[in-house]
Design a protein around this nucleic acid. Sequence first.
RNA 1: GGCCCGGUCGUCUAGUGGUUAGGAUGCCGCCCUUUCAAGGCGGAGGUCGCGGGUUCAAGUCCCGUCCGGGCUACCA
Length: 512
Amino acid sequence: MSVRVRFAPSPTGLLHVGALRDALFKYLFARHCGGQNILRIEDTDRNRYNPDSEREFIETLRWVGIDFDEGPHVGGPCAPYRQSERKEAGIYEPYVRRLLEEGHAYKAFDTPEELAAMREHQMANKLPVGYFGGEWRDAPASRVEAAEREGRPCVIRQRIPRGTTIAIDDAIRGRIEWDSDQIDDPVLIKADGMPTYHFAAMVDDHLMGITHILRGEEWISSAPKHALLFDMFGWERPVFVHCPVIVGNDGKKLSKRHGATRVLDYMAQGFLPAALKNFVALIGWSPGDDREGMSEEELIEAFTLEGLQPSPGRFDLEKLRWLNGWHIRRLSIPQFVEAFRKYAREPYVRQYWTEVAEPQPESSRVSDAVDRMARVIEEQPSYAERIFALAHERTTVLPDVTEVCGFFTEDEPAMDPKAVAKWLQQPHAAELFNFLLENLPRMVDEAACESVLREFAEAKGFEKLGPVVHPTRVALTGKTAGPGLFELMAVLGPERMERRLRRALELASGAS
RNA sequence: GGCCCGGUCGUCUAGUGGUUAGGAUGCCGCCCUUUCAAGGCGGAGGUCGCGGGUUCAAGUCCCGUCCGGGCUACCA
């Protein structure tokens, strides 16, 4: 039987990294097994429903490269894939009726006030909190009928058997048992007629032929209810796989408090999908050996349930950054350029840097620099390739390219005042720049640039190249750090160098 | 409170009775070098939450305990 898994988010907001990891595990598992990955939208909560959410999920997952074999956006044999539509289509009704007829479910007419009072009483008396029978579990049929005739709103609850043990066999944690008396009767159908997760997800999982329920460990406590539902219908239980979650630095479930949790924010910050997948896969899972940097193909090949770990893991941004650099360095230069080009095209990037990121002195600085670099890619592709070759080893996150090599795209790059003070005030600075200006026509490649600088150093009696290299670097780039000087000069070419050297001359001491 | 899950360097992890507890990241140092990186080499960092047991031998098995987390909604 072919493996079938489903990513079943509730469309209530943004796609955060916890959900990404959830989706990724399922995707990797399905691809590893040659099975199907299904997207199902669990929109049964009308109060929390957010109409933009589904698009956010699909677009984000498309960016990351997690695709689906079936889902609301691609269709499939089990359509529809939105639970609200499934409810409209009457899919759940026969199953509710069956449960009711067979005594596995019952109608309960408690008002919210009554339930609140019950909970209060239970808490005050340190009793287990929940609906363990209440008014209606064993109410006589006549009373139920009377309530129905009055038109009182009701929910339908699952009748959990009492005095027995319920167990599941979790693929990661092994056998987990509960005393059924500890499990309260969950609502299956709400008063508005919508099914709850407990009911809809399990019925759909069966109807869609889901073989493995991979989900976060926060679902363990309701697993016995779910397993029991399968038993009540006489359906074969899927394999339960309760994955550890990703937690923030305080050890708690990841939320907005922990900084950027929206996956698109990582896109906007310049992380590669491959790196993000690689990183997130490594939280709570390992290939069993010492591998860390892995391509998507390797991840799929290596992903098995045995590699899953039971304990939650923390999101370590530093490691993500390292991994992102690792993936960038494995790109060819054309691939690297292409990755940047795609990045610059994402509409959310500018929005992120101008509206979402921490307020900066010049808030649009990053996106402006990115746009400038993108323009160079379009207009001067061979120049761009040479620039990116120099940025390659120095890039952790895509916009770093503009940090490291942005000076290539500006006629008058900003001068770092400290660098100016330290290197352009050198007594020989003006003489050096004049010398370079004179020799500009010769400086057509890396070797020629180097020999011109060496000539000057020798003429001045400098033992090391530093005193000529540093001022030149500052003159040409405005900074003290960056790509190798001779390489950079060769890429810049005589024309661009001339303009910069003349400007530096004005700032240099000793200028006559 | 009740039920359930978890606990190996700061962090991510390998480890399934016998290893000087391995790798990675981060940090520090050295090498390379015109700077910054990248790369190479090395270092610091772990009484495997704690306490008992079982065993010739325990991070690995058992019991207890502590700590952390999850659930305890007509949310998922």
